[in-house]
Amino acid sequence: MNEDALAQCQNELSQEKKQFEEFIYLVSHDLNAPIRAISNLSVWIAEDLGNDIPADVKQHINLLQARTQLLERMLGAILTLSRVARTDLEIGYVELLPFLEKLSNPFRKEQVSVSIQIRSVVPGLITYYQKLQTVLSELITNAILHTDKEKVNIAVVVTQTGEFLKFEIIDNGPGLPADVSERIFSLFYTAKGKEGNQNIGAGLTIAKKIANFVGGQLAVDIPPEGLGCSFVLYWPRKEPEKV
């Protein structure tokens, strides 16, 4: 009976996993249709109303469209989360220094005050390079997003510990209170309200989910208040098996 039970348990587990992915996918897909409809309808209503409408109506329509976009982005994030195990599964060699430089360049161009220092004692590895790129981009985005300084300084340091590469992404931002170090990884958690900014609180969730998917880890080191954040990403050195 025991081997049966074990097999059944594992079977249930994999089914549960599949159901989970399917559920999220379905949820985001099915919710997407009415949101698209709302978005379209709001555009049509705005067009039909023309330009000479009261300012408060105009403002309400803008707000409504912003909220709709927020909803769409949230659903997009759920969809991305559900797809972590299915997308960007290409495996390739990553030469770390050029890879990190190339990854940092868009951020440097975008905001002049962003400076990203890269150091790596490891030449490269064979891995899911798109996934690694996504995680690191999310972490850099996160550092820039939460800065309170005029000039953003980010250091990306790659070292090697046992089976893993250790990526440290250190910023000069305001840092984090210790009690939120776990919560920042939950979906739709944002440090500030969702109203003002573009952030919906999904980037770190996705980054962590990817790290877990590849068999690594993502955590945040809480330094003393005001010293900035240091995210630590452990990424397996072992070449992933092709699915």
Partner: peptide, 15 residues
């Protein structure tokens, strides 16, 4: 499912 639907409700209410 709980968190997702809970978080989605706020912007919806606003809309």
């Amino acid at each position: 499912a709980y968190v997702v639907s809970h978080d989605l409700k706020a912007p919806l209410r606003a809309i």
